[in-house]
Amino acid sequence: MSAITVRPVLSKADTKAFIELAYRLNGDDPHWVPPLRAEVAATIDPKKNGWFSHAEAQLFLAERGGKVVGRISAHIDRLALEMPREQGFGPGTGFWGLFEAEDAEVAKTVIETAEQWLRDKGLTKAIGPVSLSIWEEPGLLVKGHDHSPTVLMGHHPARYQGWIEALGYTEAKKLVTYELNVAQEFPPLIQRIVSNGEKNPRIRIRKVDKSKFAEEAAIILAILNDAWSDNWGFIPLTQPEIDDVGKKLKPLVFEDLIRIAELDGEPVAFMVTLPDLNEAIKPLKGSLLPFGWAKLLLWLRRPQVLTMRVPLMGVVKRLQSSRMASQLAFMLIEQIRRAAVSNYGASRGEIGWILEDNQGMVAIADAIESHVNREYLIYHKPI
C-alpha cells in the first residue's frame, strides 16, 4: 500500500478537495445528511465565519497514491485559552475537528499531524472533534447512527470511535440529545405547572419580533451568556459570530417558535426552536443547483416538518435551581410545542445538545417523558 502524505490546505483546489471528501466517504450512509457545499465553504472561510475573529485554524489533507483519503483541522481558540481549566479548556488547550478518514491508518496520520501542529504552537492538550467552534458541531456521534441528525448536528461513521480511542483519547464530556413525541400532551403535573404559570400576572411568555431581529438577538444573547457561563466548555458568543449566525439562521426564524419569558417585565429566559432544515436539504445532495434553491425557498416560506429541534434555551443564573426556573422552562416548551404541532405539522421534537451531567436540563427532559436518542463524545489527550 502506498505511503500516506499529509499537506496543508493552501489553494482553492485543496479547499474543494477538503470539502468533497466528506461526500465520498459518507455518501453511502442513508442517514448522513449532505450539507450544502456553500455552507461548508463558509464555515472554513475566515472572511465568512465570525469565529475566526478570536481563533485560527489550519486545514490538512491526507493523500495516498494521489487520492485524497483523509482530512482534519487543527485550531486554537483564544477565548478557550482564557477559560478556567475546571471548565474544560483553559491554558494549553488546542482542538482538532472536521475529521474524515478512509481507514485507521489515515485516521492516525491526520490526528497526529493535528497534534504536532498544536504542539508547535506551544499547546499541551488536544480536544476533539470540535468542528470548528464548540457552538457548531462538537463531539463524535457514538449512539444514534440509525437515524439522521437534525439541523446543525453532526453524523459520523461508527468506526471512527475505535480509531480515535486507539490513539489514547479518553472521554472529556458526553453530550446528548433528547427525543419526544410533541403531538402528545405532557403529563398532568406539567400541564398544571404550565396552567398556573399562565395565570401568574408576573409572567409573560412572548414571541420574538422578527422585525426587530437585532434587538431580540441581543436579549437572547445576554440571557444565554449569563445562563451558560458556568457550564463546561462554555465560550461566550462574540458579536462577529452572532452577526454571521444571524445571517445564516434568519430564514429559519419563525416568531412562534422562538420565545422569551419575562418576569416582572424583565427578560429572564428564552427558548429557540428550529424546523428541521435537514428534512429539506437531504434530497438536494449538497447542491442548490439546478432546482434545489427553488425547492428550498418554497419550503422556507412555511415549512411542514416531522421534527423540530431546540438547540438553545436558558434561564438567567439568579433563577436557576428555583421552582420559577422550571416553571418558565415548561411554559416555554409547552407554548412552542402547541405552535409546532398546529402551525407546522410537527410530531417529533429533539432537545439538545445537552451536557450529560446538566442535572437541571436532564430533569426537565425526564419530566416531559423524552428519551436520549443520540450521544456525542468530546475526547481529550495530553500532547
Rank of each mutant, 00 (worst) to 15 (best):
Glu255Asn: 02
Ile281Trp: 08
Pro311Tyr: 03
Leu257His: 10
Pro283Trp: 14
Phe270Asn: 04
Pro290Arg: 00
Leu252Cys: 01
Thr273Ala: 15
Asp276Phe: 10
Leu277Val: 14
Arg309Asp: 09
Val245Met: 15
Trp299Gly: 06
Val310His: 05
Leu296Cys: 12
Lys285Ala: 10
Ala269Cys: 11
Arg301Gly: 01
Lys247Asp: 15
Asp256Gln: 05
Lys282Gly: 06
Lys295Met: 09
Ile258Gln: 04
Ile242Ala: 14
Asp256Leu: 04
Val253Gln: 03
Ile258Asn: 12
Ile258Leu: 12
Asp243Cys: 04
Met271Gly: 13
Phe291Pro: 08
Arg259His: 01
Leu297Ala: 10
Ile242Leu: 15
Leu296Tyr: 10
Arg302Met: 00
Leu289His: 07
Gln304Ile: 11
Gly265Cys: 06
Ile260His: 01
Glu279Asn: 08
Glu266Ala: 09
Val310Leu: 04
Ile281Gln: 06
Val253Pro: 01
Asp243Ile: 07
Trp299Met: 01
Pro283Asn: 09
Lys248Val: 06
Leu274Thr: 04
Lys295Pro: 06
Ile242Thr: 13
Asp276Thr: 15
Trp299Leu: 00
Arg259Gly: 02
Val272Gly: 04
Pro275Tyr: 02
Val310Ser: 07
Lys285Met: 04
Gly265Ala: 03
Ile258Pro: 09
Glu241Cys: 00
Asp243Leu: 09
Arg302Thr: 00
Leu306Val: 09
Glu255Lys: 03
Leu257Ile: 12
Val272Thr: 12
Ala294Trp: 13
Leu249Met: 12
Pro267Met: 01
Glu255Pro: 01
Met308Gln: 13
Pro275Cys: 03
Ala280Asp: 03
Pro303Ser: 13
Val272Tyr: 00
Lys285Cys: 02
Thr273Arg: 05
Leu306Met: 11
Leu296Gln: 10
Leu284Cys: 08
Asp264Phe: 05
Glu255Ala: 05
Pro275Ala: 10
Asp264Cys: 06
Ala294Leu: 15
Phe291Gly: 12
Val305Gln: 02
Glu279Phe: 10
Pro283His: 12
Arg259Cys: 02
Asp256His: 07
Ala294Thr: 11
Ile258Phe: 07
Asp243Thr: 14
Ile281Lys: 00
